[in-house]
Design a protein around this nucleic acid. Structure first.
Lengths: 108, 108
DNA sequence: TTCACTATCTTGTAATGCAAGATACTTAAA
DNA sequence: TTTAAGTATCTTGCATTACAAGATAGTGAA
């Protein structure tokens, strides 16, 4: 999988998942991995960025299965950023898919 | 428009356009600009990369309207790279759109 | 001669995914 | 006891790439 495709999209996916319910980093890695390849080295720095930008807040919660989990919760700013990203993604991915469709259908 | 979304996608779009017919840099900038925002500072270095990787060849052609145009032509390797990228893009963008759809429809 | 348009190219910066590795808790097998 | 597997977080440094900004240069019209 082309790593470049994921640039910017990962933020959006994480925020979309957090919009549904709070989640912790490890959970996000596994959740997204069901859709496409992703590594922990991408998610943890990304979550830190979202925190710095005020798009998420965090709280610790103990677990019976291992170390405490750090849950992430989407803020109002996060919701707005997410919605903006999703809107841009829809326009952009549609434009790209159109272009590809036109160029490959008409190919000589 | 989120610049991050374009990472990797621009290569694919340029190669898709070149798969239809040979084009020169300035032309590509304007062609792609009809679909989404793009600048010359992205296209010319990108074309140089494609050349280095053997995905395109070039030839000069004089013009009545200004300086000579450098046309880019897709090689067999370029065609294979393009097809691979397009296949990955289709899978990836579908996965992302699905995830977003599921998370925003079911939102509380 | 000045401007607009056409056309190519370079430099430096910012952003971000990821490999690799460190740390630490729990449980179960050897 | 020791070892390993699974769960969980975090950091460092690297590679890639879009783009702003600016330089250069040809053509044709005002």
């Amino acid at each position: 999988m082309n790593a470049q495709f994921k640039k910017g999209v990962l933020d959006m996916c994480v925020m979309a998942l957090l919009g549904f319910r709070d989640r912790y980093g490890y959970e996000l890695v596994h959740e997204i991995s069901e859709r496409f390849e992703i590594s922990e080295g991408s998610i943890y720095p990304l979550l830190r960025r979202l925190l710095t930008e005020g798009y998420v807040t965090t709280y610790l919660q103990e677990s019976d299965e291992g170390p405490a989990r750090k849950y992430y919760s989407l803020t109002k700013q996060g919701i707005m950023a997410r919605d903006e990203l999703i809107s841009e993604w829809r326009d952009f991915s549609a434009a790209v898919s159109d272009l590809i469709g036109e160029m490959t259908n008409a190919e000589g």
